[in-house]
């Protein structure tokens, strides 16, 4: 235990004196600023719909003057309609001609409209006319939710689990490589090799250092973006397991290289592969098997559940991470013992 504490203190001091700590603090400030102040809460484009009533009876004009027009804003002339569309390229213009019984609509738009959106516009106009005719449509479908509906999450905050997962990846995988190349370069690893420290302590100490840094970083990030309404205990557990797993994977890869240039292509390849689950996070319907088995997928999904609970269980993700850590530790132990602690192989 004395040897472990000593080694951990040494690794921690070196980590804190390293430029990487300033990189991390800088990244933390940037990301918090980005999430809190730069990212909008809603990404929806302003798809306003303008309507110009060109009919003789001007029923729509009269109705909208008396009450709110729902999704539509009424304009008084074709010129005003075109000016409004010019101002907002994503908006839709509707020209109404004919009568309530025989309506004719012309749709004006600058950008392409998808078939889905065309149908939505059709439905809105039909509903509008039906309302004016006094026809009330009964809903012909029912919506049932399997779970309690989660609160709508502001778009800027939905990025927190992704950014937190990347932080786990970067701290664990990338920085441990930098750390190890520094030891190889200065030769200090040779001094450790002929000490009684051994492989187990070497790995555990490094993993612990990055767990502490990961926890400090991760908790600060969440507290500064989402506040204290989060289950910090479960969040900490996920960060610990995630950072430990990626630190172990980072050691396994870094053992085979002597410097960051040699490591670059393989290291960046592994890093990129582990960033792929972000696609599935953005497009939940796209989650092929090969993405779901990447550990960062489980971390990302579990983090989302912990930060924005919907009632889903995170136990499978935790189990996957625990098994992953055990496997990675075994492989890490073997490669460190055979490659790092012995020379000339």
């Amino acid at each position: 235990m004395k040897a472990f504490i000593n080694l951990f203190k040494k690794d921690m001091v070196i980590a804190l004196r390293n430029a990487l700590i300033w990189v991390l603090i800088g990244t933390l400030v940037l990301l918090v600023g980005f999430v809190r102040f730069l990212m909008p809460e809603d990404f929806q484009q302003n798809q306003s719909q303008y309507i110009y009533d060109k009919s003789q009876e001007q029923v729509l004009q009269k109705v909208f003057t008396q009450s709110e027009g729902g999704n539509f804003t009424i304009v008084n002339s074709q010129k005003a309609l075109e000016a409004s569309l010019e101002k907002n390229p994503y908006s839709i213009g509707v020209v109404f001609e004919g009568s309530i019984d025989q309506p004719q609509f012309s749709i004006l738009h600058q950008k392409n409209i998808s078939e889905k959106n065309q149908r939505i516009i059709n439905a809105s106009l039909e509903k509008l006319i039906a309302g004016l005719r006094g026809i009330e449509r009964t809903q012909q479908y029912q919506v049932e939710f399997l779970r309690q509906q989660a609160k709508v999450i502001p778009k800027n905050l939905t990025s927190v689990p992704v950014l937190l997962t990347f932080e786990v990846l970067i701290i664990g995988f990338l920085f441990i490589a930098v750390f190890m190349f520094q030891e190889k370069n200065e030769g200090s690893i040779r001094a450790y090799q002929i000490s009684p420290g051994g492989v187990f302590l070497y790995i555990i100490s490094k993993v612990m250092v990055f767990i502490v840094i990961g926890l400090l970083y991760g908790l600060s990030f969440v507290l500064l973006t989402l506040g204290t309404s989060v289950n910090l205990l479960t969040l900490s557990l996920l960060i610990v397991l995630g950072v430990a797993l990626y630190t172990l994977i980072g050691i396994i890869v870094a053992v085979f290289f002597n410097n960051i240039s040699d490591w670059f292509f393989v290291g960046m390849g592994v890093l990129t592969l582990n960033i792929l689950p972000a696609i599935s996070y953005g497009l939940p319907t796209f989650a092929p098997k090969f993405i779901t088995i990447i550990p960062s997928y489980s971390i990302m999904s579990a983090l989302r559940e912990v930060l924005f609970p919907t009632g889903k269980s995170i136990v499978p993700a935790l189990n996957m991470l625990i098994i992953g850590n055990i496997l990675a530790f075994g492989i890490c132990y073997l490669v460190v013992k055979r490659r790092l602690m012995k020379e000339g192989q």
């Binding site: 001091v13 070196i14 390293n18 200065e186 030769g187 690893i189 040779r190």
Partner: peptide, 13 residues
Amino acid sequence: GVSFEHPNLYAKL
């Protein structure tokens, strides 16, 4: 105890 020909120290300590 081993003293190496090429100094191998923790540079940041």
